[in-house]
């Protein structure tokens, strides 16, 4: 554990010194502030911010995550010559990277939200769901990035795979869902849709955010089914478990490969 902690601390310092993470925080700061200033009402601003965060957070997390691990290859090899366990090293690298990315996202959106007193309004729930889902998405996509980086040897190929993975989860998956829904239009689709949404972390985060905006009224029966499901404790537990398993499964797979990997 101490080895892990030391690596985390080292990495935190290393990343905070890089400009990348600063720009990332600044980006969200400017966007959030801009949306609240010119977006016409805080509800509108939060909707736009959520849509943007659901695209940008996964992209930056997976690309930056993969890139960092490729660039840290010689550092990793150096550490592996020392008496440091591979699992401890992997965990340290992972947490040390995901944590600052999540923190800078939270700071970026958090400062304007607190400063503008949004947290004291009726939008508190949305802001909280946005913060939590943004954080979880960061951890999920950094985990996926690590899995890609330990699996694919070449950096360029690894980065392309990462971007493809991001494209698949944020855009193509929904297209597939739409195609499936059109194909099976004659059947009751509410429950299958619910399952499909639970399977994709980006969709799950989006649906959770939609529900805080009370948009389920637009969705008729489908909305009612979703509302009912996510309204229950079991539904909440399942959705949290769904998001967590997207962190745990890639991490476990990544650690396995990392342990066997021949550097």
């Amino acid at each position: 554990m101490t080895a892990t902690r030391k690596i985390i601390v080292y990495e935190l310092r290393d990343i905070v010194r890089s400009r990348w993470i600063l720009f990332y925080a600044l980006f969200f700061l400017v966007i959030t502030e801009g949306l609240f200033r010119f977006g016409g009402g805080s509800a509108n601003a939060l909707v736009s911010l959520s849509s943007l965060a659901l695209v940008i957070v996964p992209l930056i997390s997976i690309v930056f995550g993969a890139m960092y691990l490729y660039d840290a290859r010689s550092f990793t090899e150096l550490l592996l010559t020392q008496p440091v366990g591979r699992v401890a090293l992997f965990k340290g690298l992972y947490i040390g990277l995901a944590l600052p990315i999540a923190m800078s996202f939270l700071l970026g959106i958090g400062i304007p939200l607190v400063f503008r007193g949004i947290l004291a309004t009726a939008h508190l729930e949305t802001a909280l769901v946005l913060a939590v889902s943004g954080t979880l998405l960061t951890f999920i996509f950094v985990a996926l990035a690590f899995l890609v980086a330990v699996t694919v040897e070449q950096k360029v190929r690894g980065l392309s795979v990462s971007i493809l993975l991001w494209l698949l989860l944020t855009v193509l998956y929904d297209g597939l869902v739409l195609a499936l829904a059109a194909f099976f239009a004659d059947y009751p689709l509410e429950r299958p849709m619910l399952v499909l949404m639970l399977l994709n972390p980006v969709d799950l985060a989006r649906v959770l955010l939609l529900l805080t905006f009370d948009l389920s009224a637009l969705m008729g029966y489908t909305g009612a089914v979703f509302e009912q499901f996510f309204g229950t404790l079991a539904g909440k537990a399942i959705s949290i478990a769904g998001l967590m398993s997207w962190i745990v499964i890639p991490l476990v797979a990544g650690i396995r490969r990392f342990k066997k990997k021949d550097f």
Binding site: S51, V171, D174, L178, A182, R206, M219
Partner: peptide
């Protein structure tokens, strides 16, 4: 137009694919 024919598709509201 899609949701008029296929109501469950509304769950994709604000998904990037819809914008595309």
């Amino acid at each position: 137009l899609i949701v008029e024919k296929l109501e469950p598709a509304l769950i994709l509201l604000r998904s990037p694919i819809i914008g595309v």
